[in-house]
Design a protein around this nucleic acid. Structure first.
Lengths: 193, 193
DNA sequence: AAACGCTATGACAGCCACTGACATCAGTCT
DNA sequence: AGACTGATGTCAGTGGCTGTCATAGCGTTT
């Protein structure tokens, strides 16, 4: 039999909270949404929200762990003969796969984050964490510092720039070509003089 | 005659708040310090703290505006014949001057920030803002996107890595040599393959 | 010098993010 | 049935941050 209005013990509390937050942040904006409202919409309480997410921002970043491990694992599994920049590129290819078919979602999520400094801060620290993971994977490959950190910085910079250009596009296209082109241009820039 | 205990209308309220915050964050850590305590130590009230600083973190970042304009102005004033990466390097030289003789302060400040994720987030968004300013200066130079953004990312990455290595050093040395070396290594890494 | 006005600060009330402690509910095991 | 476990609810409290109004110091005007 169905549950009577009460949602307690309904499945996927975490997912419901994510959806509710995403919807409310879209409709009214992050600042104009309270955690109590998110919890209500998900049929839960504020306290439960904070059991699943460390804070009000984190609910938008549940995918970043997968992105991080996907990127770093691909770097770690690159042939050991590969130059650092090529190992990083292998990671970027994995990232491109990660976003396959999710451009519209990525676009709306970016819209929410773009208008709020607090959310931008969170996004930046996720990027920094991604960078650290990539650097660690490179070191595991025998790349020494500071080359590992710099190659990781370069890789994440390429991802960031390419990702923005991809979501700015009107048409549904693949992310990978943007990554390729951005990487080429980074090489051109740093080779200057 | 001197003032009797009350500090109202004592000069440099802002500076006193900065010093008090820096001291307390050092002694007990950021989380264990309340804004009321900072204000007390500065002889002011909590409300006044928030008139000078947007939030509890911002009090540690008052210098970042000077750093940003110093970096960006130097980029903008580089000879128009200079390649993007060389204009960026001119900016980095200005940054090195900015930190002249402030290594110990930079070191302690970094210690406060290093142990607190919220402060790291704030530092990261300041870096991003710095990057944006540098990119804008490059565009003003006629550099097109995405080269401007990428060169700016590269420049800020070099600053970041060099700065960390400089503050890790035990001896008081100049920042500029670290910047030179880091820049060289970035070029080597991105030239790979 | 008295009145005026301007700005920095204080005082107070309130919202909301976030936390700790304990109660309660649903399903499982025995 | 009764005990056990894990997810959720309830409640009280802390602290960051804001809006609003009162007040203190200081210069200016008349």
């Amino acid at each position: 039999m169905g549950y009577d209005g009460l949602m307690r013990w309904q499945p996927d509390a975490r997912g419901r909270l994510e959806e509710a937050a995403f919807a409310l942040y879209s409709e009214r904006g992050f600042d104009q949404t309270t955690v109590a409202e998110i919890a209500d919409r998900a049929g839960l309480t504020e306290r439960t929200f904070f059991r699943y997410f460390a804070d009000k921002r984190e609910v938008l970043f549940s995918g970043s762990d997968l992105l991080k491990t996907g990127f770093a694992d691909a770097v770690a599994q690159a042939p050991s003969s590969a130059a650092p920049i090529d190992a990083v590129f292998a990671g970027l290819q994995a990232v491109a796969g990660f976003f396959e078919g999710r451009r519209e979602f990525a676009r709306r999520r970016r819209g929410i984050i773009a208008v709020n400094p607090e959310l931008q801060e969170r996004e930046l620290i996720k990027m920094a964490s991604l960078k650290d993971a990539v650097a660690a994977a490179l070191r595991q490959h025998g790349v020494t510092e500071p080359a590992a950190s710099l190659a990781a910085e370069a890789g994440v910079a390429v991802f960031h720039v390419a990702f923005e250009r991809w979501t700015d596009q009107a048409d549904e296209e693949k992310l990978l070509p943007f990554i390729r082109e951005t990487m080429t241009q980074l090489k051109a820039v740093t080779a200057g003089a």
